[in-house]
């Protein structure tokens, strides 16, 4: 009886919060049939938005993966003054409003910003171009790999790494052959979360993108643009594509994950 109630409550909550809105998105997208939805997401602007989103993710995710693992190693394996600060700093993007992040980039890279004037003097456009969108995306998605990897690094301890060292392995060999295999599922999960966040990021990117249609419009910006211009099918169809991207990422993750209890 109690089990049944628990199940009802848990599933009911999920249906209400997750499934409901998601099914409405799918329903509205295909309300007028598959054709209009397909046409809406294959316009040059829509295609460009999806491509841009993928490019941003393709740069921000690997960068955050590499630096996330480095940060985790630094936090767990190399005590240094200010370690607590770094640890807290990593979580900042979770607490900070993405819009604030966007405005911070604005101040740094704006025409009159700290770096902006020098950069634009050298013909480098950061704000309202791909670089700032990557920066904004990387900023808001940095905690995930670090937060996944830190606990497992603590848990596995240093014994295996020291064993590898006494067996002749260099730091890099130790990392590649011993540390990384031990943390790879956490890294992979961190990558999935980072990717999901990168694909779905809105606030920070919307501030720094300039929202140039067909140029600096990511998929989420495109969705909001379509919605604001009363293109309901376009907005929901693009949302469906975004949702499918996220689902593919999560499914890939589940397929990669080893069957539990193999070793």
């Amino acid at each position: 009886m109690r089990r049944l109630t628990l199940r009802t409550v848990a599933l009911g909550y999920l249906a209400l919060i997750l499934l409901g809105p998601l099914s409405v998105v799918f329903w509205r997208a295909f309300e007028k049939g598959f054709g209009p939805a397909w046409n809406a997401v294959t316009t040059p602007e829509a295609m460009h938005a999806f491509q841009l989103t993928l490019v941003i993710a393709a740069i921000a995710v690997p960068a955050n993966t590499i630096f996330g693992v480095l940060c985790a190693l630094l936090i767990v394996r190399h005590p240094f003054p200010g370690k607590g600060l770094l640890n807290a700093l990593v979580d900042l993007p979770l607490a900070l409003s993405p819009v604030v992040v966007g405005f911070a980039l604005f101040l740094l890279y704006g025409r009159t910003g700290w770096f902006g004037s020098w950069l634009s003097g050298h013909g480098i456009q950061v704000l309202f171009a791909l670089p700032s969108m990557i920066l904004a995306t990387a900023f808001v998605s940095i905690p995930f790999v670090v937060r996944e990897v830190v606990p497992v690094l603590r848990e596995i301890g240093t014994d295996q790494e020291q064993a590898a060292e006494t067996l002749g392995a260099s730091q890099w060999q130790t990392f590649r052959r011993v540390t990384f295999p031990a943390i790879r599922w956490e890294v992979a999960y961190g990558v999935v979360l980072t990717t999901a966040r990168s694909l779905g990021g809105y606030g920070a990117v919307s501030v720094v993108s300039g929202r140039l249609a067909g140029q600096t419009e990511t998929a989420t910006l495109y969705v909001s643009d379509r919605y604001e211009n009363f293109d309901i099918v376009g907005a929901y169809a693009a949302s469906v594509v975004l949702a499918l991207m996220a689902i593919v990422v999560l499914l890939t993750m589940n397929l990669l994950r080893p069957k539990e209890g193999v070793h």
């Binding site: 014994d159 295996q160 060292e165 006494t166 067996l167 392995a169 260099s170 031990a182």
Partner: peptide
Amino acid sequence: APRKRGVGFVFQHYAAFKHM
């Protein structure tokens, strides 16, 4: 460095490479 000392070290809790 330990890796250049030519020592074999056996840890109390084995330090087995779990994924190998």
